[in-house]
Design a binder for these strands. Sequence first.
DNA 1: TTGAATGCAAAAAATTTGCATATTG
DNA 2: CAATATGCAAATTTTTTGCATTCAA
Lengths: 145, 145
Amino acid sequence: MKDLGESLRARGMRLTPQRERIIDAIQVLGHATPDGLAVAVGRDGGPGLSLSTIYRNLEALEEVGVVSHTHLGHHSPTYHLFDHADHLHLVCLSCGVVIESAVTTADPFVGNLLALHGFVADVKHMAIHGWCAACSALATPVKEP
Amino acid sequence: MKDLGESLRARGMRLTPQRERIIDAIQVLGHATPDGLAVAVGRDGGPGLSLSTIYRNLEALEEVGVVSHTHLGHHSPTYHLFDHADHLHLVCLSCGVVIESAVTTADPFVGNLLALHGFVADVKHMAIHGWCAACSALATPVKEP
DNA sequence: TTGAATGCAAAAAATTTGCATATTG
DNA sequence: CAATATGCAAATTTTTTGCATTCAA
C-alpha cells in the first residue's frame, strides 16, 4: 500500500488519527465488522470512536482503495485491508467457520461465467456458503448463522 | 412440490389463506424480498398482510422446504419457490441486474473446493457479484446496490 | 375445542443523517 | 483560514417479539 496520507490527500481527504486507528485495528483483526472495530479501537489506548465515524471512514477508505469488504453472511459486512483481499471466503452454514481459499480455485468457474454470460465475476465479494469438512461429515446441516 | 397442506400438517403446521397468498405472490414475482411481498400480496385483492406474518411465514415455509432464500446483496434476502431454486445468481454491482445461470457452471469450482478443503459448497445461497457484459464493456464499475 | 397463526404495537439491531464543533492542510 | 472530519443525538430501515384475538383442523 502506498502512502496512505497521500492517497487521501490526492482526493481532498485528510489523514486523521481516527483513520489511522481504524486501519491499525483492521490489520490486527484481519476481518472486521463495523462494531467489532468499535470495540477493537476502544482497546488501543485512545478514546473510543463514534460508530458514525467508523461507518463513514470505512466508506471513505474503501473509496480510496485501502480497504474492501466482503459479505460473510446475513448480517455482517466485514472489512479487511485491500492487500489482504486476495482470497475468497468459505463460510460453514453449520458451525460458522470461515475458510480462506485462493482465488485461483475459482478460475474455471469465473472462466465459464465470462464465456457464457460475459459476466466478470468478483468471487471475493460475497462468501461461498456451504458445509466445512467436519460438519459435512456429521451430515447435519443446520440453519444459517 | 407435493401437497402443501399435507407437508405443513405433517409438521403440526396449518395451511392458512395467508400462506397461500404468500406462496402465490412468490410464484408471480420469481424472486421476492419480504417487503416486496407485502406490496405484492396487497395487490391480490385481499387485505394486506402484516409484515410480521410475512417474516414468520417465510421462515416456516422455508423449514418445510417450500421456499428458500438467497442473498443477492447487502440488504435483500430474496425468496423463491424451492422448485425455482436450481440456478445461481449473478448480480451486477454496477447496474444491479440479476442473471440466472445453471448450477453446473460452477461444477469445476465446487469440485475444487471439495478436493482442496473438503468443503461442500452451496453456490446458490449467496449471489456471485461482478459486472455484467454491458457494464464491464463500459468499464466503469460503480458501487454496490 | 385447542393449539397454531394473525395483527398490531412496541422493542431491537444496524445504519444513516443533521448539525455544531474541532481539526487538518 | 477554509473545508473536511468528528461526535452526539435523532431519524431510518429492517427484522423480531409479546400478547390478545382469531381460526384451521
